[in-house]
Design a protein around this nucleic acid. Structure first.
Lengths: 136, 136
DNA sequence: CTATTACCCCATCGGAATAGTAGATTATTG
DNA sequence: CAATAATCTACTATTCCGATGGGGTAATAG
């Protein structure tokens, strides 16, 4: 299941992508429109800024804005930042690989085999979608 | 991320599928071979029995055994029993549908749109795999 | 019948992660 | 400077997962 963090994060990105111009939007405005707790959203936007998706402007007339064009924002990238691994098992992950402690032989592990197949496919979907694809 | 419950459940099913004959296998034997806590595995096997995947025989020489042939055990079905919804969001689920409380309009929700696409694809993968496919 | 073996149910429990909260600080604009 | 809005630190409540332990019950061998 997707965490609310990821869900809210994508919603916020979508909201920003749907703005007419790219001028800063305040946290409170996004939070109100998407029904998200302001403080929780705050931490998510901060993460997205540190990850290079958003820019922020402090003070009057400040807020958050997209740094790149929606069509250049890859959803697999967003997903990895917000949610973490795309794979459902650490041993089936590319970017977050970790060996299972209970597993004696990865080569014959049926669960891993299945989850790699799922992962490859999910990744393909996420990579083929940009923020522009899902926002409009 | 896949819960250990699901992981262990699939591993146990695989172990049973790989048996030469279909005679009962003791919990302890499966647990030892797959490095799973006996008590935890016990509850999982019980669930799988109640869900119609396994049969159990009590007393000396007892244990668990597959009721259906591995090729007739659908992994999407197994997944739903052990893990729950295949979709990453309740609002994108067929069998476990639930409306998001924060969502004002499902039709324009970008997250939902993306997650439905992911779901459809994951489902296709899981449905096209049987226990026989992943065990051998 | 009786001992043995193994399934079955219930209650609990620590730890990690999630979701959200509070308050102080820093930077910008006018 | 004064108002505004992002930033940072720290904290808390809740939920869930994985696991454990005890005790009971049913089936089988001999």
């Amino acid at each position: 299941m997707l965490s609310k963090k990821t869900k809210y994060g994508i919603k916020a990105l979508t909201f920003l992508a749907r703005q007419k111009d790219n001028s800063p939007v305040q946290i409170a405005e996004i939070a109100k429109s998407e029904n998200i707790s302001i403080k929780f959203l705050e931490s998510i936007l901060l993460l997205l800024r540190h990850s290079g998706f958003l820019g922020a402007k402090k003070g009057k007339g400040g807020g958050y804005y997209l740094i790149k064009a929606p069509k250049d924002i890859n959803m697999a990238h967003v997903y990895r930042i917000l949610e973490g691994p795309i794979a459902l098992l650490p041993c089936a992950s590319h970017n977050f690989y970790e060996k299972c402690v209970d597993c004696t032989d990865e080569a014959t592990c049926a669960v891993r085999k299945l989850m790699i197949e799922v992962r490859d496919n999910t990744l393909k979907i996420l990579e083929s979608n940009t923020l522009a694809d899902i926002a409009f």
